[in-house]
């Protein structure tokens, strides 16, 4: 579980996060949504420790990040898996080497054990015939699968995904969403996803955090988002005619 208490982050004169507090539970897919410039990326990067908040605390199962020593932070980072927007796979390595990298760096496993674990996660993310290929030789969807495999290979307690569906076709996007949700539930991971994709919100949003102008405007589940009368949320989520109709049908069914 990740608990965020009143975090504020400024860049010069500009305050990007103005006191955000929330809680992300384990075994759930937690989504952060909001318009461009709402502070989503800064929020995610603050959770990851890439940005240091000016005030407030972020605790990982009771461990307050700002109070940890460098060694403890390093230890904590080995419990984190991250799927970047552009996958961020290492160009100079094969798919197999990319996935095995965290194990090679942080575990005392033998090459044989690493190979076995890599093969297991490759199967888990349904990657076929890609072991020896380089990232440039595989499709965007496969790259995302490799990124997810690399993020989970070390059995992380926390999984962060930045726009995991960007650049993917709708079918592949749903497959990736479902894969993340399955893995989250299977391994009881605290998963936090930064997304713009409303399909993901509807499909896997067990907890949704909506940010607006650096403030937490609304939070709830994908069921509750249909019923909310928060204008900022409805303006953002139901901006397309299609989603307006979907909402209308859902509310009618619910009656």
């Amino acid at each position: 579980m990740i608990e965020v208490k009143n975090i504020i982050k400024k860049f010069g004169e500009q305050t990007v996060l103005k006191g955000v507090s929330t809680r992300f539970e384990a075994g759930m897919t937690n989504l952060i949504i909001g318009q461009s410039g709402s502070g989503k990326t800064v929020f995610l990067k603050s959770l990851l420790g890439i940005h240091t908040p000016d005030s407030g605390t972020i605790s990982f199962d009771g461990r307050i990040y700002s109070e940890l020593s460098n060694d403890e932070r390093r230890e904590l980072r080995t419990e984190i898996g991250m799927v970047f927007q552009g996958s961020a796979l290492f160009d100079s390595m094969t798919v197999e080497e990319n996935i095995g990298f965290p194990l090679k760096m942080f575990s005392n496993k033998s090459p044989k054990e690493i190979k076995e674990r890599v093969d297991f996660v490759i199967d888990r993310v349904h990657l076929v015939n890609a072991h020896q290929k380089r990232p440039s030789e595989i499709s965007g969807g496969m790259q995302k699968r490799v990124a997810i495999a690399r993020a989970i290979v070390n059995n992380p307690k926390y999984l962060f995904c930045d726009e995991p569906n960007s650049g993917l076709d709708p079918k592949t996007a749903i497959v990736i969403d479902n894969l993340i949700q399955e893995i989250t539930q299977e391994y009881n991971i605290t998963t936090v996803i930064n997304t713009h994709d409303m399909n993901s919100v509807m499909e896997i949003g067990e907890k949704i955090v909506f940010l607006k102008n650096g403030l937490l405007e609304w939070e709830g589940s994908n069921k509750e988002i249909f019923k909310t009368d928060n204008e900022a949320v409805t303006d953002f989520v139901y901006s397309s005619e299609l989603f307006k109709r979907v909402r209308k049908m859902y509310l009618e069914d619910d009656k």
Partner: peptide, 17 residues
């Protein structure tokens, strides 16, 4: 530089490298 723009350096940092 290419590793920086494609977030590969961020990936290393997040892993604790």
């Amino acid at each position: 530089g290419t590793m920086r723009v494609t977030e590969q350096i961020d990936a290393l940092e997040v892993m604790g490298v």
